[in-house]
Amino acid sequence: MNLAATLAIALAMSTDAFAVAIGKGAALHRPQLKEALRTGLIFGVIEGLTPLVGWALGKVAAPYVEAWDHWIAFTLLGVLGLRMIHASLTADEEEEEKPSSHGFWLLAITGFATSIDAMVVGASLAFIDANIFTTAGAIGLATFTMVTLGVMLGRGLGQLVGKRAELVGGLVLIAIGGVILYEHLSVG
């Protein structure tokens, strides 16, 4: 997998966390850089570790699905992309209660919830034998950056930008899945 694809995956994986960070920033009264960095670090570490877990699980399954690996990666990335697009187009039915401050465990649980997709991507990457450490590092760094920015931008921008970022991330994942499928089918 090339650098452009790695960066595209990293940015796509960070968009849902960015959307959440905008909401977290909007929930705070004038968020400070220290809170934004702390939130970004928690999300970035979690988002960087979950693809490693998914990759390890995918490596265990890889010998059994080698003939279908490109279809599995295409399907997983496509479904994940469609889920992100659907979430971006669906209006929130009820507004969450806004906390006055964000505790570590609340941020960690929220960070884990937004990183499940990164675990699926990690499993997908195991099937195509990609360098998981580079990709996981890029995902963690992109998430740290996007969440830090999201918290700082949240108060002024609200959820509008977060929903659009998630839409773009979903489209990017579907495109990457399509490229993986195309590359494997055109070689074979």
Rank of each mutant, 00 (worst) to 15 (best):
M1A: 13
M1N: 10
L3V: 14
A4N: 06
T6F: 07
T6V: 15
A8Q: 10
L11W: 15
A12K: 05
A12L: 10
A12R: 04
A12W: 09
S14R: 04
S14A: 15
D16V: 11
A17V: 00
A17C: 12
F18L: 14
I22C: 15
G23W: 09
K24A: 15
G25H: 03
A26Y: 05
L28H: 03
P31G: 06
P31E: 06
P31A: 08
L33F: 12
K34Q: 14
T39V: 06
T39A: 14
T39H: 02
G40N: 04
L41M: 11
L41T: 11
I42L: 10
I42T: 05
V45E: 07
E47Q: 15
G48H: 06
T50Q: 12
T50N: 07
L52D: 04
W55K: 02
W55G: 03
G58V: 05
V60K: 14
P63G: 08
E66D: 11
A67H: 13
H70E: 10
H70Y: 11
I72R: 04
F74S: 13
T75L: 13
L76V: 12
L77P: 06
V79K: 01
V79N: 01
G81C: 05
L82N: 03
M84N: 02
H86K: 12
A87K: 13
A87G: 08
A87D: 09
S88H: 05
T90S: 13
A91N: 04
E95M: 13
E96V: 13
E96M: 13
E96F: 08
E97Y: 09
G103A: 03
G103V: 05
F104I: 03
L106I: 13
L107N: 02
I109V: 15
F112A: 14
I116R: 09
D117F: 14
D117R: 10
F127D: 07
D129N: 15
A130G: 07
A130T: 12
N131G: 11
N131T: 10
I132N: 01
G137D: 00
L141N: 00
T143G: 09
F144E: 01
M146F: 09
V147D: 02
T148H: 03
L149S: 05
M152W: 01
L153I: 09
G156V: 03
G156C: 04
Q159F: 08
Q159T: 13
V161S: 01
A165L: 08
L167E: 07
G170I: 10
V172H: 06
V172E: 07
I174S: 07
A175Q: 00
A175G: 04
I176F: 04
G177W: 00
G178D: 03
G178F: 04
G178C: 07
I180K: 00
I180Y: 00
L181Y: 15
Y182R: 03
L185T: 14
L185F: 11
S186N: 10
G188Q: 12
